[in-house]
């Protein structure tokens, strides 16, 4: 690990100032950052420890939603009764991610900002445009079984690893961001993470020195919610494909549907066309299968991940069907 200096500021303003120096990085739970520092993928020269800033509350908002402090641990967020009752898709996604130990340490904002687990990103001996812009993408001609089928580019086919962010995308969360100038702005979660394009080194649209202070959930949507994840082992593994689904049905018709997919793209992937096809359609297998096909219509596969297309379609169709029938 490269040498760094360390400080633990007492408030957000001091933290913002400290993080403005070149080479500085915020650290909270550290479960991803320290891991990457150990293998030289991340090389901050100054760590600004924000883990004890007062951003640990889950509170109600005036519009009937929730405001989740950036530093609420994954465990505490999943255990919050309001999250379990009103946003079960979020609790389920959190509990399907990582391990008990990691969930205790990892924070909500850190979960959003965790980096891809593409093995070529982790291997500093290999080309990787995300780690070293311009060096190439070893995954394109490599072992790309875990990689993206949607929204990728020739520069990068990595996927975002978060489960929590997928649920938040389905819930249409907003991210509250503090700017170095001391202003606060809100970013819809769909606009937080980027597609790789020609700049895969940038995971998000956040500017240097900006700090996520909270995640805002709108009032809980009508209908049933669930999170389903397919992975190589029963627990403690990243998703091959996952889906967060919220479906509201009445009188045999679908009134509203919100979907987000994990393990398929550089960001939590909202299949807009599938959602549009579902709204107003009959609540039956034909509609669910059509929506599942719509979700993967733009898919592009690589030699080892062709299986993700049928897997995604079956997962989406089955999840929608189970939700509609209360399964």
């Amino acid at each position: 690990m490269r040498a760094f200096t360390y400080e633990r500021p007492a408030d957000v303003a001091s933290a913002m100032k400290a993080a403005s120096q070149p080479g500085a990085s915020f650290i909270a739970g550290g479960t991803n950052l320290l891991d990457l520092m150990k293998i030289d993928v991340e090389q901050p020269t100054h760590l600004v420890d924000i883990s004890r800033l007062p951003l640990r509350e889950v509170g109600e908002t005036a519009d009937g939603g929730l405001r989740i402090g950036a530093l609420v641990s994954n465990t505490d967020l999943a255990a919050d009764q309001r999250v379990r009752q009103r946003y079960p898709v979020l609790a389920m996604a959190l509990l399907n991610g990582a391990s008990g130990q990691l969930r205790n340490q990892a924070t909500a904002a850190g979960n959003l900002l965790q980096r891809t687990r593409c093995p070529y990103f982790y291997d500093v001996a290999m080309p990787c445009n995300k780690r070293q812009p311009g060096s190439g993408c070893a995954a394109l001609a490599g072992f790309n079984r875990m990689h993206a089928i949607l929204g990728a580019s020739q520069a990068c086919i990595a996927v975002h690893p978060s489960d929590m962010a997928v649920a938040m995308a389905a819930l249409r969360a907003e991210i509250e961001v503090q700017t170095p100038a001391g202003l606060s702005r809100k970013v819809p979660i769909a606009e937080l993470h980027r597609l790789p394009g020609q700049n895969p080194e940038r995971d998000t649209t956040l500017a240097r020195g900006e700090l996520i202070t909270a995640i805002l959930l709108p009032p809980p949507p009508a209908g049933r919610q669930t999170y389903r994840k397919v992975r190589d082992r029963a627990s403690y593994a990243f998703a091959l494909v996952s889906v967060a689904a919220i479906v509201d049905t009445a009188d045999g018709k679908i009134r509203d549907a919100r979907l987000a997919l994990g393990g398929v793209a550089h960001k939590p992937w909202v299949p807009k066309e599938a959602e549009r096809e579902l709204v107003g359609a009959a609540a039956d297998a034909g509609s669910y299968e059509a929506a599942a096909r719509a979700a993967t219509r733009e898919a592009r596969t690589y030699p080892h991940n062709e299986f993700k297309v049928p897997l995604t379609e079956r997962l989406v169709a089955r999840t929608l069907s189970d939700l509609a029938t209360g399964g």
Partner: peptide, 12 residues
């Protein structure tokens, strides 16, 4: 609370 000590800085 249980944590992975390898992913925690002692100074923190």
């Amino acid at each position: 609370v249980r944590l992975n000590a390898c992913l925690s800085l002692a100074v923190a």
